[in-house]
């Protein structure tokens, strides 16, 4: 009886796991891969993944998904080739279990099809100067995000507000050339980076905001390439050293009347002299 119970429970468990994993595959892909990859929709930031399971074996794919940087570093020829093709723009490592990775691979496999060449990126064709200005305001936080998300400058920096931006995440000076309009849109819709995912999970950006920000980032990247970037020439290091010296001088002045020695130092000095 107990045996039968155990068997039936195991079967139910297996079925549930299978069901859950197949469900997970689609969901996980949407959440973590779709910002950069499509399946049969053409190349975005990263390659079109349609048919990738036929080109590479599952073990290699799992390794690449879990730690592409490591694989490239280890000199795996296929990985190095991909890295070169995409200007060494690294894919963030997938943080999750082995099961989830295989669920994603199964999902890609089940879709079938073959990779398409890059579709024309028409996302930002209609962007106007207003979009750029609004995007800048949103980026800097002068205009609050509708869903109360933190403004980009908290963690990112760009060249036209040099010295002010955050240094917790990458500089976005060349983001447009790496991601293109579609890529930026996808990134902002469902950010694949853990810190960004957590930050915007409860405070998603709306479509208008995404469009404005993407337009601004495109403008930033273009001016950067044209050499119009206003580089920060402010000597922060010198300022720091100078400030420190000034602070020490100030302390010296403020506490010049402080009690420097023990009142007993004369006695101790005399005793030490006597001992010698």
């Amino acid at each position: 009886m107990v045996f039968m119970q155990r068997v039936s429970m195991t079967i139910v468990f297996c079925l549930l796991t299978f069901y859950a994993s197949s469900q997970d595959g689609a969901d996980l892909f949407k959440r973590t891969c779709s910002p950069c990859h499509s399946i049969g929709g053409g190349r975005l930031v990263g390659p079109d993944l349609a048919g990738v399971t036929k080109k590479a074996d599952k073990v290699w794919l799992t390794k690449f998904i879990k730690n592409s940087a490591g694989l490239i570093k280890s000199g795996n020829p296929a990985a190095v080739a991909i890295g070169k093709e995409y200007n060494n723009l690294l894919m963030p490592p997938f943080i999750g279990s082995e099961n989830e990775v295989s669920a994603i691979i199964n999902f890609i496999d089940s879709k079938g099809g073959s990779a398409q060449s890059a579709a024309a990126d028409t996302f930002l064709n209609a962007a106007s100067v207003e979009n750029v200005m609004r995007g800048k305001a949103l980026f800097l936080g002068n205009l609050p995000l509708k869903n109360a998300g933190s403004s980009c400058i908290t963690c990112h920096s760009v060249h036209d507000v040099a010295g002010v931006g955050g240094s917790l995440a990458k500089s976005l000076n060349l983001s447009y050339f790496m991601l293109k309009g579609q890529g930026i849109k996808a990134m902002l819709q469902s950010p694949p980076f853990p810190a960004m995912t957590n930050t915007y999970a409860a405070h998603p950006l709306n479509d208008q905001e995404i469009y404005d920000l993407a337009a601004y980032l495109k403008n930033i990247s273009q001016t950067m390439v044209k050499g119009q970037a206003t580089r920060s020439t402010f000597p922060f290091l010198l300022l720091g050293i100078g400030g420190w010296c000034l602070f020490m001088l100030l302390l010296f002045g403020l506490w010049r009347l402080r009690k420097r020695l023990s009142v007993n130092h004369v006695i101790f000095a005399r005793q030490m002299a006597t001992e010698k």
């Binding site: 506490w255 009347l257 402080r258 009690k259 023990s262 009142v263 007993n264 130092h265 101790f268």
Partner: peptide
């Protein structure tokens, strides 16, 4: 954070 007239252990 720095009381300038405080007695020290040698006092």
């Amino acid at each position: 954070f720095h009381n300038p007239y405080m007695p020290v252990m040698d006092d």
